[in-house]
Simulated scan of single mutants.
Amino acid sequence: MSNERQIEDADLMDVAHDQEQAQRLRKALKVLAENPNVGGKLQEMAKEVLSGRISMKDAIETPDYMGALGDRMGQIRRAAENQTQAEREESRAKFAEWQEKQQQEEDRERAERDAPSLNLVTGPRRGGGRGHR
């Protein structure tokens, strides 16, 4: 997939409410596309959206893709229901750690995006600095 065109956050604005949500959605799609444990229609959908071959809006409206998402959510729910109390606590701790790392990364990216650029390049003034005719 690295040789293919990759969508930008702006390409997801037809379904996202704001730029940050679009960024999070693109990251989630990238995780789905690159995780070998995902497989099937869900991974196919993520790759198709990321490559720009299908829009996120069209993917949401595709029964096969939404069925795959529903199936995966059902698997996650069943796995959570079958966890012991110790496993639940361990999962919560891992999730909290992951969530903190995600927040730090988002804060860093936001700071980089919002910081003023110090590498401004300006060209010569038009007219060589002479007055207006």
Rank of each mutant, 00 (worst) to 15 (best):
E90Y: 05
A28L: 09
Q21C: 07
A22V: 01
Q75T: 08
R108I: 04
Q83D: 04
D64T: 04
L29H: 02
S55E: 03
L25Q: 14
M45Y: 05
G127C: 07
L25K: 13
D9S: 14
R26T: 09
K27R: 13
L118V: 13
Q19A: 15
V38A: 01
A96V: 11
A59P: 00
G74W: 02
R24F: 03
E89R: 06
Q99C: 03
Q43L: 02
E4Q: 09
Q99Y: 11
S117W: 11
L42T: 05
S55N: 06
M1D: 06
Q99T: 00
E8P: 00
A22Q: 00
E44M: 12
M66H: 06
M73E: 05
D9R: 11
A79L: 02
M56N: 14
V121G: 13
K101N: 09
S91W: 05
D114Q: 15
E109R: 09
Q43W: 03
L69N: 00
S91I: 03
K47F: 00
N119R: 15
K30Y: 04
N3G: 06
Q19E: 12
H132N: 06
I76A: 10
A111I: 03
K47W: 01
N37L: 05
M45R: 04
D64N: 07
Q103A: 13
D71R: 12
R53E: 11
G39D: 10
Q102M: 10
M45V: 07
G129T: 01
K27E: 11
K41V: 00
N35C: 05
D11V: 02
Q83P: 00
D18H: 13
